[in-house]
């Protein structure tokens, strides 16, 4: 009676194991495909990142700023005659701002 139950169960188990192995192998391959696709995507994004970085660096170059400056729209070197340097006062003092001639 016992063998009548165990034998089919064992056969069922073996068949399940076989299918399980096939399923696991298939899942493993699917994952490898997905990872492969992601790696390809990563490479493409990295390539794009590199070209965007180069573009950004080129746009921020001093020569570009100079060209823009000539258009009167961008970077201008501060006029040293008009620069005011601010010294931070230490200690508790009334809230005020003032201009003082350098001693």
């Amino acid at each position: 009676m016992l063998s009548f139950v165990i034998k089919p169960l064992l056969i069922l188990f073996l068949v399940s194991c076989a299918f399980g192995l096939v399923y696991l192998r298939s899942s493993f391959l699917t994952l490898e495909y997905s990872l492969g696709d992601l790696e390809k995507q990563k490479t493409e994004y990295l390539t794009e990142k590199k070209s965007l970085l180069a573009e950004r660096t080129g746009l921020l170059s001093f020569a570009k700023l100079q060209v823009s400056r000539n258009d009167g729209e961008a970077f201008v070197m501060p006029d040293r005659l008009k620069v005011v340097y601010i010294n931070k006062q230490k200690g508790y003092l009334p809230y005020k701002a003032s201009l003082e001639r350098k001693q």
Binding site: M77, R80, V83, Y85, N87, Q89, L93, Y95, A97, E100
Partner: peptide, 25 residues
């Protein structure tokens, strides 16, 4: 030199105006 000093934020040595910024805590 003129532009470099400005770029490097090097203060003038002459009697230029300097702000004395006082802030209460």
């Amino acid at each position: 030199a003129n532009q470099a000093l400005s770029y490097m934020d090097i203060p003038r040595d002459d009697n230029a105006q300097r702000a004395h910024f006082v802030v209460a805590r």
